[in-house]
Amino acid sequence: MAFKLEKEPELNAPDLVVGWPGIGNVGLLAVETLWRQLEAEYLGEIEPEPYFYPSGLTVKNGVLEKLSFPASKFYYKRLENRDVIFFTGEEQPAESGSTYASGVKAYRMANEVLDVAQQFGCRRVFTSGAAVSPIHHKATPGVWAVSSDSALLAEINAARSGKLVSDLQGRQTQANVSGLNGLLVGVASRRGLPAACLMGEVPDYLARAPVAYPAAAKSVLQVLSGLLGFRLNYTELDEMRVQMNEMVEQFFEQFPAEIKEKLAQRRQEVAESESGEPITEDDKKWLEDHIEDLFKPGGDGDDRAA
């Protein structure tokens, strides 16, 4: 056991809500916003040494005081209708050379998180992250919902009443949920815990940009709050979106004119575009190829991973 708990509160069949960093930091931003607004209390953490190398060190007067590691913390909140446990990890454990969680360490961490969840009698598990999608950055992101339990998926869809449903999910016969967000859903299912992952859409041309995407985090929270009955204030996320949109516009302006023109056709307000026509399948394929070229090392784009 590599977790330590500061408290052992009596909780009433809580839900577990989880967020790790990833593309656009969607999941981490959503869950941190949630537990901060609900003023959740610190519960405990997973000890980092089995999973991470030190991320830094503290030196005072030339003397090493301590090593710093990525934090993986639990919080809890008692609510009128249901209790909730939150978990946020600053980093996903991964094998050498892997961008997302992978290997034995990732599987062990997923089980550690669920050990705590089951110790407190959690009844459901929710993770959140990003869905890389061919949308425009001025569009309202939809939310992809993936669940190990058909009844839970039906409950999610009923709670959002058709709002923020992605038009893109389901067009492909198969899809992958990378990292611990997907792994946790699978491991929870093996333990008999209904689990779901809510993924806010992030434009594919921003998937490798080292910026947060608060618009997607807001969409995820709107779906989750509707499901769990939370009342949230989205002012902070809206302000972040305004600031980030300024950065995104600068990034967007670096694209060749032909790419920008085709991306503009993705906007929800199709009638306001010059063509007045939706983007064609040929244009979609052309964009996929050319957006990928922008991020190749030595190309015209930014090859940094998100």
Rank of each mutant, 00 (worst) to 15 (best):
E8I: 05
A13E: 15
L28I: 12
A30C: 05
E32M: 13
R36C: 02
A40I: 11
G44D: 01
I46P: 00
P48S: 03
P48K: 02
P50Q: 07
P50N: 07
P54Y: 09
S55G: 12
N61Q: 14
A71K: 15
S72G: 10
R78P: 01
V84M: 01
I85A: 09
P93G: 06
Y100E: 06
Y100D: 03
Y100T: 03
G103T: 07
V104Q: 04
K105M: 02
A110T: 13
N111A: 06
L114R: 04
R124Q: 14
V125P: 00
S128A: 15
S133Y: 10
K138N: 12
T140Q: 09
P141L: 02
G142V: 08
V143N: 07
R160I: 07
L168N: 09
Q172P: 00
Q174W: 06
A175M: 15
A175W: 07
V177W: 13
S178T: 12
N181H: 13
V187I: 14
R191A: 01
A195E: 01
A195G: 03
A196P: 02
R208H: 11
P210Q: 13
Y213E: 08
P214I: 09
A215C: 05
A216P: 07
A217W: 01
A217G: 05
S219C: 04
L221F: 00
L224E: 06
L228V: 10
F230V: 06
F230M: 03
R231N: 12
Y234H: 12
L237M: 11
E249A: 13
E249Y: 04
F251E: 10
E253S: 15
E253F: 07
A257R: 15
I259R: 10
Q265M: 13
Q265F: 03
Q265I: 06
A271D: 05
E272M: 06
S275A: 13
P278T: 09
T280Q: 07
T280I: 10
D282Q: 15
D282F: 11
D283H: 14
E292S: 11
D293L: 10
K296G: 00
D302W: 12
